[in-house]
Design a protein around this nucleic acid. Structure first.
Lengths: 257, 257
DNA sequence: CAATAAATAGCGATAATGCGACAATGTCGC
DNA sequence: GCGACATTGTCGCATTATCGCTATTTATTG
């Protein structure tokens, strides 16, 4: 864990939208801190764990996290991660409805905008980059809070289990086996999942798998491949679970991209 | 073929950027016409054939076509096609360097912008759509012309063949021989070339040779030498192919440098 | 157009889970 | 030492997601 040494640049008042890209190793992170600028935190690669005062989320690359200005937050990496951030000047009206940290679903447009802004030379004060920044703010405002978030909890036993699952996404995890790993009984873990994340273990596991599935589908993998890489033993059960959650089948989703 | 019945809406002077989406059957098309607005013609799905007064292009979804205002053009569909167009008010400074129809390489950002603009309700005069329109114009201006593009495709079999051709540029490649290399039938490869690159195998091969030829000519080689180094067995057939593609002979091109 | 592969849907069997009830143990204040 | 309260584990039973399989539909290939 490290304190961010580069908070300073966030304060540049001349530019409404700033970017920051960084590559982070697994298990590393940034200690709790806050800054006046609002921040869109996103990893184009890897899985983040974001902790606010209210909640903790596990965040794959299909999603991002909006951190309003002056909101305390902490970030750590479940895996090797490539972050691409946006920092918005507080004088701009961004997501006024959100007073707290919130997980959002990234759109394809938002992804491309963030990538482009991060690729533009830092000091580029040119007009077209500025216009793109304005659109970034528009899009940021229209991002909807994630309908499929993955709350993480703080209990050490729970964290051990979740980090184990994140690092073995292709396995079929059984609560009984995880219990010995966590040093707690199955019943206690059931209670922990419910109280800390609001979800039962099964719900949590299903969401976890389906979020991984969304990522793989975005990359263009087949339903069969996805089913196995996210830990189902048969394609049909994956398709069934997917449809039960979203209302449409995996390939219908893929075609929408 | 049909005359576009909906040119009228293109004339709306109130909006700098208009959109038009349409689904077209294979073998259908639009008769030659022109309009004051500049147009970015793009198919998110399928292969277009665009004819201007200067040239004809085959356009897969990786590319688009910029049609300056009042330029005569004609469109037909090689396959089932989903077009997503942008029409830009002529008072905006868009690609002033282009006086003629030009094929451009789409960027991921441009794709998403066009899709978003097309999805926005037609009559949405809201500010954020307007800002996105401005960015569309910026991005449009920065798209690079690709008049002799060599789209590569993503299919692994296709890639194997292309990489083989690239590493043996001086050979006369026969599809039948390449087929065994790729592990697919000749018919499948024909389909792959068409669907992934928008070109038939022969078109692709010719372009490939001619691009190599341009490079060699730039180095000052003679027509005879170039003909052999890019895989033609006679100078005359090379000169003929070159003239068919560009409209002038190799040495005329060389003298222009 | 026929053959093949991939995606989806259906279904019975079953192991895994959810959860209420209750007992055991730990924590805290006094 | 004792009561109040929270945490944890054990047991039983109802519920269900997933498996393993087959069938059907859809897309791709020769």
């Amino acid at each position: 864990m490290s304190l961010p040494s580069d908070i300073a640049f966030i304060l540049d008042p001349a530019r409404p939208v700033l970017t920051h890209a960084r590559s982070m190793q697994a298990e590393t992170g940034v200690l709790p801190h806050a800054h006046p600028r609002g921040q869109l935190l996103w990893a184009k690669q890897g899985v983040l764990r974001v902790t606010s005062e209210q909640a903790v989320w596990v965040v794959p690359s299909t999603h991002g996290v909006w951190i309003p200005g002056n909101c305390n937050h902490q970030v750590s990496c479940e895996t090797l991660v490539e972050t691409r951030n946006l920092y918005i000047d507080p004088t701009y009206p961004v997501r006024d409805q959100d007073t707290q940290v919130v997980m959002v679903a990234m759109t394809a447009l938002m992804r491309e905008i963030v990538l482009r802004l991060n690729d533009s030379p830092k000091c580029s004060g040119d007009a077209s980059t500025a216009r793109l920044g304005l659109v970034a703010i528009d899009e940021l405002n229209s991002l909807s809070a994630a309908d499929l978030s993955l709350p993480a909890g703080t209990d050490p036993r729970l964290r051990r289990i979740i980090s184990h699952m994140v690092s073995h996404p292709d396995t079929r995890h059984i609560l009984g086996e995880l219990a010995s790993l966590a040093g707690a009984s199955v019943r206690t873990l059931e209670r922990l999942f419910k109280s800390e994340t609001g979800l039962t273990f099964r719900q949590w596991r299903t969401r976890f798998k389906l979020m991984n599935a969304l990522e793989a589908l975005d990359r263009g993998e087949s339903s069969t491949a996805v089913a196995y890489t996210v830990g189902y033993k048969s394609t049909s059960s994956f398709v069934a679970a997917f449809k039960a959650e979203f209302g449409y089948t995996p390939q219908v989703h893929a075609r929408r991209l």
